[in-house]
Nucleic acid binder design. Structure first.
Lengths: 244, 244
DNA sequence: CCAAAAGTGTTTCACTTACACCCATGA
DNA sequence: TCATGGGTGTAAGTGAAACACTTTTGG
């Protein structure tokens, strides 16, 4: 066999930070560990990468197995490989983050028991391993991409009101936005289709429903650059298929 | 031993895309492979991760061993893990990119032979494995970060002229920038210290030298966001220490 | 005095920001 | 009719973009 096999190998896992906006809060789906190490502690779902599956496939498989979540937006986040991050031995983890829309969420509920639970990202329990860093980094990335891509729409149902859209931005960014400016901007982008339907709930004017017109993740035009000429955005950062 | 060891393990490597701006061109440092697979083909430097070193340490070690490059800016890029990317067997690679300033570059020259060479990123030879994708992605990321962080200064010597600074931006972004606007903007940022010295070469007015005042990588204020209030940038994206 | 790169200001235009009231509905 | 959230416009300020000539030096 080739000389590759002479080297000792670390274990490789994938771990996924699953976000969803629930009841005007940004939540993360956690699993309570049933085995050592960190038995009883909460952790983000993940597991070992199979020898014949891509990293993203592995992440999706683990997600399905552990939380029943399928067909959602996923993106590679960062690879964590500090030698001591897993007491069992050298383990490198490729972290992903996933976004679940309000209307995809039943699936996550369909799991067995109390071992899977949504927590506010702003009030997490102590997490196993270095999972707290992973979640923190995922939040940073999500906020960042919210500003120049359409990732956010992955968190909304197909039909949504502008108020819901704005509320989603507000929870994630953890700050209030101006209603008129927000609407002006988002409507001027030409990525929303106004529907005939309205959503009426409660004793007030019904809200117009919209849908997101793009199939793919889109990035808005690049922010002002170093001197001269507008730069259309080259690539999309992250969201690569996976190797090759 | 813990159950971790029941799983077959992929090999894990680190590979680094090394950029430098040379003679008004953006170059990548490549190594000619001496062994199969892809013997004779050019590749980015890299190698297996040791069991007791962090990923970034591994990347730095390989860089030092293979190209004599040390003490340069490095940042994790992406992890490539398609099952078939290495014909020898399952190998996952954590890709990094490194930036070498003009005045740090001697080191890279100090290697043995013709086996290490700089190539224009705009005119690369065929590369081994999926290294072409890795370089392409590194370029995308570099361009992207050039627009909102100070990474670019890692490619310049301690003292530089505004023309050199602008030229660096132009090669990387592959487009011309307006001289007056560029200077106005970069000077208004308060990150440059004008030096007394000037650089005179050639039969023309000498250029004032500047130095970059910040020690750390800095990110400029966030681009305009979804409605209301300026958003100071939360984190820096990438450039995490490594795990934990 | 000529060639070559360094250096410098102003105007235009677009977009971000701040801000307050009327509208449609159900109860 | 009242309470509740939905929906709308304008003025001011900031910053990006476009653009051409003078300055300083060496030869």
């Amino acid at each position: 066999m080739p000389h590759t096999y002479e080297y000792p190998r670390p274990s490789v896992t994938v771990d996924t930070v699953i976000f969803s906006v629930i009841a005007d809060d940004l939540k993360v789906l956690l699993i309570r560990r049933g085995v050592e190490p960190f038995k009883g502690a909460w952790a983000i779902p993940g597991g070992f990468v199979g020898m014949d599956e891509s990293l993203e496939d592995a992440a999706r498989r683990e997600l399905r197995e552990e939380t029943n979540v399928q067909g959602v937006y996923m993106e590679q986040l960062y690879t964590f490989g500090a030698p001591e991050r897993d007491p069992r031995g050298r383990t490198i983890t490729v972290a992903y983050f996933a976004l679940i829309a309000a209307d995809q969420r039943e699936i996550a509920a369909a799991t067995d028991s109390d071992a899977v639970e949504w927590f506010s990202v702003y009030n997490l329990p102590p997490l196993a391993f270095d999972h707290a860093s992973i979640v923190e980094y995922a939040l940073t990335r999500l906020r960042f991409k919210l500003d120049y891509t359409s990732v956010g729409f992955q968190l909304l149902p197909k039909k949504f009101t502008l108020t819901e859209l704005q509320a989603m931005y507000e929870v994630i960014l953890a700050r209030k936005l101006d209603k008129r400016n927000f609407r002006k901007k988002v409507l001027s982008m030409g990525i929303l289709e106004p529907l005939e339907e309205t959503k009426m709930e409660g004793p007030h004017r019904p809200a117009k429903l919209y849908s997101f017109t793009e199939d793919e993740l889109v990035a808005w035009p690049q922010h002002p650059t170093m001197g001269g000429e507008k730069g259309p955005l080259a690539g999309l950062m992250g969201r690569r298929s996976d190797g090759a």
